[in-house]
Simulated assay, not measured.
Amino acid sequence: MKKLLLSAMILVAVTACKKESIITENTESTTGDSVTVPESNEISEAIIPFKQIELSPQETSEILAKKDNDTLYVTNFFATWCGPCMREMPHFKEKIKEMESQPVKFTFVGLDPKEDWETKVKAFAEENNLSKHIVLVDGQKLTPEFFPKNFKQWDGGSIPFTFMRKGDKTDETIGMMSKEMLDEKINSFK
């Protein structure tokens, strides 16, 4: 419990440091028992704690497999150390919010080294409110056979990589996607 509270306090402190603010120095010393709180139109989202869900290569193949329903499955392979992965992530976050009432499931497969799961991946997931969308795969367990078994184009040589599937129709994108490209690809499944 203490660890959870400490993590939440650190996350709040880090988040607060990122906000732009103007601080004016006041040299006068005043005493009083009231505090002025600035008004804000932002609605803060509750932080969903990150749970490490590790998938085996077989379980990863199962989430990529064809399903007999009308849901679009968008699976993005990423790592927190990957610059292009981080640059495209805001587009995915926007799409998640935009399509929350539609039959679309977004999954982010984290390929960070295992020693970074509890630190870097956890911080990224919670800071970006993606905790419920991220699963983890130990990249060292992905054999060369995994890639041609699951994909037509991707050989695991670079990330980000996004795989979309709805029934028999699939789409593979190697490399970073712009907002427009992501919109176009998702719309092609409608």
Rank of each mutant, 00 (worst) to 15 (best):
E45L: 14
G139V: 03
E45G: 08
F124M: 13
A65H: 04
P90L: 10
G32I: 02
D68K: 14
N129K: 12
D168E: 15
T31E: 15
G175H: 13
A13S: 14
L182P: 02
M1F: 13
T170A: 08
D171S: 14
T27Q: 12
F92V: 00
M177Q: 15
K122W: 06
T30F: 10
F78H: 04
W117M: 12
W117S: 11
P113A: 11
S188H: 05
F77K: 00
I48F: 02
M99S: 11
V137P: 02
N128L: 09
D112P: 09
W154R: 06
V35Y: 11
D70C: 04
E45K: 15
K149A: 15
E100P: 05
E180W: 00
F124V: 02
S56P: 07
I186F: 04
P103D: 14
N26C: 14
S44K: 14
S29P: 05
P144D: 10
I22G: 07
T75Q: 06
F161P: 07
G156E: 05
M89L: 11
S178P: 06
F189S: 10
A65D: 10
E184T: 12
V37M: 14
V109T: 04
E115T: 08
L142H: 11
N129I: 01
T162W: 09
L6W: 05
E127G: 13
D138A: 06
G32K: 03
K97P: 10
K179Y: 10
M86I: 15
K120M: 08
E127D: 09
V135M: 01
T60I: 05
H91C: 05
T36K: 15
K105L: 03
I10K: 12
F108V: 09
T107L: 04
P148M: 11
N150R: 00
V37H: 12
